[in-house]
């Protein structure tokens, strides 16, 4: 490269199309935070429109919002940015309802956004940590479908775990 290269580097834009037809125009560096999109870009090269039939626009938007934050902050490898990212991540997952959390997890998993999957699984884990079985059922609205007496039987049989 010549030393007189311009400071404004042109960043390539990608179009991502969600299952409901909503499209997002995103910088390549943001979208490739997602492993699946990174693979598509590397394999297909010049393809600019990427269809994502398994992700709804609302959640794709949220995933990309996360990617954008992390792609921007990664350009500076400052220690301080780690803190900013952590704080931002905390805010990001703080008030997610379970439905949104579920769809985000599914989207992040489908798009191979490993770091985002880690963040979201940790959020779910924090909702389980230290809770009793009854409390977990209550939190996640899980209905026991064991036959009457079956649960008690399992508990007895596996008393090593429930004592």
């Amino acid at each position: 490269m010549s030393s007189s290269s311009t400071t404004t580097t042109t960043t390539r834009l990608l179009m991502l199309k969600a299952s409901d037809g909503v499209t997002f125009e995103v910088e390549e560096a943001v979208a490739t935070k997602l492993g699946a999109i990174n693979n598509m870009v590397e394999e297909e090269g010049s393809e600019d429109l990427i269809c994502l039939p398994n992700v709804n626009g609302k959640f794709l938007g949220m995933v990309l919002e996360w990617c954008k934050k992390h792609a921007n902050n990664n350009t500076n490898s400052d220690k301080g940015n780690d803190e900013v990212n952590k704080w931002w991540d905390k805010e990001f997952v703080m008030d997610l309802d379970q439905n949104t959390l579920y769809h985000l997890l599914m989207a992040a998993d489908y798009l191979s956004g490993t770091e985002l999957v880690d963040l979201l699984t940790e959020k779910v884990a924090s909702m389980i940590r230290g809770k009793k079985v009854e409390e977990i059922r209550e939190t996640f609205k899980i209905k026991s479908d064991f036959l009457p007496g079956q649960e008690e039987e399992i508990r007895k049989k596996n008393s090593w775990a429930f004592e």
Binding site: Q98, I136, S144, E151
Partner: peptide, 29 residues
């Protein structure tokens, strides 16, 4: 929603908890 997650994701969630807690989820349903 939690029970609808694929096994791979549930495993990832439970892997960050002490195993005793994971074992106890076996009587959820």
């Amino acid at each position: 929603r939690f029970s609808q997650l694929p096994d791979s994701i549930i495993c990832e969630i439970l892997s960050s908890l002490p195993t005793i807690q994971a074992v106890r989820t076996s009587i959820l349903s």
